[in-house]
Design a protein around this nucleic acid. Sequence first.
RNA 1: GCGGGUAUGGCGGAAUUGGCAGACGCGCAGGAUUUAGGUUCCUGUGGCUAUACCGUGUGGGUUCAAGUCCCACUACCCGCACCA
Length: 806
Amino acid sequence: MKYDFAEIEKKWQAVWEREKPFRAETGSDKPKFYGLIEFPYPSGQGLHVGHPRPFTAMDIVTRKKRMEGYNVLFPIGFDAFGLPTENYAIKNHVHPAAVTKQNIANFTRQLKMLGYGFDWDRVVDTTDPEYYKWTQWIFLQLYKHGLAYKTTMPVNWCTSCKCVLANEEVVEGVCERCGAPVIRKEKSQWMLKITEYAQRLIDDLDDVDFIERVKTQQRNWIGRSTGAEVTFKATTGDDIVVFTTRPDTLFGATYMVLSPEHALIKKWLPLLKNADEVREYQRLAASKSDMERTELNKEKTGVKLSGVCGVNPVNGREIPIFISDYVLATYGTGAIMAVPAHDDRDWEFAKKFGCEIIEVVSGGEDVQKAAFTAKDETGIMVNSEFLNGLTVKDAIPVITKWLEEKGIGKAKVNFKLRDWVFSRQRYWGEPIPMVWCDKCGWVPLPESELPLRLPEVDSYEPTDDGESPLSKMTDWVNTTCPHCGGPARRETDTMPQWAGSSWYFLRYMDPHNPDALASKEALAYWSPVDWYNGGMEHTTLHLLYSRFWHKFLYDIGVVPTKEPYQKRTSHGMILGEGGEKMSKSRGNVVNPDDVVKSYGADTLRLYIMFIGDFEQAAAWSDNAVKGCKRFLDRIWNLAETRIDGPEACSHANEAAVHRAIKKVGEDIEAMKFNTAIAAMMGLVNDFYDNAPSRGDIKALLQLLSPFAPHIAEELWERQGFEGYASTSAWPRYDESKMTESEKEIAVQLNGKLRATATVPVDADDETVLSIVKAQEKVARALEGMEIVKTIVIKNKLVNLILRPVK
RNA sequence: GCGGGUAUGGCGGAAUUGGCAGACGCGCAGGAUUUAGGUUCCUGUGGCUAUACCGUGUGGGUUCAAGUCCCACUACCCGCACCA
């Protein structure tokens, strides 16, 4: 009979549906293993062929763990709030909830079609009120602990989504999602104080097993820098606080720069002789998009404040003050002291505006020609009174201490990370459970009133005035103050897409709990996630946000671990045939439904894992898919009919089987799925040379089971093995059975390969040498030569260094 | 500019501690089966002026031995980007 993958896959999926062999059991005595993949956003296009890469990888890992006796939690869910669904709903005049339901049904069908061993009883959906009740609950806890606050500030505004964005969502000055320009807009926004956790988010990376590039990317994003805050006086008497990482260069500060948005400027405007010019610069800076601001960074611009000066606190010198957009309002204090001799940006600005350049660190080139920025021992302080003669490194603590004693400065750590802008002016998100009362201010909704459901609205259209569509729902908006009972209004912004995904892995532990986000017992049993695989694009978004929320939940005693994820790995993208990104416009999108139809789910699973290094991007190839199908056909031919005999390895294949067991097992743990499959292919090739015994086939089917579970199960049944392949015990290997009695070694003469020799395994050097020298080719080469040096590497090679006899 | 990564046949990619470079797959060539095509099976497949020699982005070096270690480069990809 032919390998009828469609029939077989249907059959076993029905068995799994009925018998639920992949159900996780909270509290089981077995050791637990929690493997997690990033839950998909259920888009209208259905599953992309990129999805099966991480999904299949973790399915393989967890299936192996299950066979090794672990109680495995491998859950799935849907991150279903978000803009594409909302936009689709607007365009087609349907409710986003209806669209979501449809899309989830389609995703579910596709995921089942691929044979994943999910625990389907634990599915979560972030748009389910029973789920987002707890998302809102966490928000209330953040609010009660002072970590959620509402403030007016310049925020990123996507001109197309008509919605604010978090810093993490702005990529190269455009919206991460739609690519439209992002501008600055003053808006009142809910913020989460992720900055309060900045240090811990860096420190605790030391305790987790994340791949290095994830750690560095998070560290860079958080961007810790140490230095000092120094207070300069202005001639108006105002204090100007600046942050600097180079307090040692204070004597070289020859001017100051404020960001165009700095609060002091407004105060000073009436005093300024060039107030109009300053206002015009402010207006220009505000209207620039982030894109323009960064693109124009080659040329520094600015305006000197005419009528106000700063005073350098170390020497009392009056220095000019500029405003310029190269100083960012949102970093440090929004003001800097400029040391053109030792900072590239200040140097460039000083050259353009004719500011004085004073060298205070010697050891570089002429500071009139270029800034000298070395921060190590190479520079020696000059022109700096009591710092003269010190290295930069030694000068920093001296000046910092001096500043502290004089009361004009202090050591300070700054982070690039900013607080998380948490409001979105859109409909399809979790309502923020807050109420504004003119008497009481912001009042949190009582927990008993959760979930605060999304109301039905007539229109989901975002508005040009920057208000959420919810703001039009006066019935819903107008409410009573939970505190004083007076008239009040609900918050009409919703939460960002990242809210629901910041804690979903906790809900999986106890998904139907009506009284808590998850029970203490479930949290204690399953925490932390043992292995989380996901995309690099989430490193400074979801991964960072969820670590922050988890640390907060740990602080208030809700979760038992400091970190949510013990191990984090990442996969490369699947590109189209030819190596370009898959996209509708290029017409190179591969639909998993089509592949499954033509070749079967097992082939797709196998191919997507065989395609290349898991961490590297890989291009789709239809031909290579056929190769994987051929491999399964070959296995089918071997095992289709029952092989009788004892369940032991055959003599001829024993070593190969044991080596394959070792290789496949180790490669799965190391995510080297491609070589694991290559090892199985090699084993099957061996079986074509030496007919496999019943035991040989059994081992092969067990190794294959995590990768291609349907065919493995079918052949397992046809062979009449007990139970299921997928729940059988993972095979063991015996190191002593892995090697044959003889080994082929390389024979080099003067370092060049000249022959090979077959020698007994682990034979001593003399035996090996005598065999080698007896070889005709070697013997001939030895004529008239003497051996100067002999190198023997056990079981690997012999190298003879020869020279002519004198 | 800063941080991270990659570079190996016609292609995707393999190669513990330095120890037979090119596993496995695709493609290609030849053969068998087949009325034919397809499928399947077997054999071969880095280059070349072929007992030799040359081959892992480039140029040096260490070593009996280098894809692997050291020094100096180049190209490409990803992330961040005026962060004081």
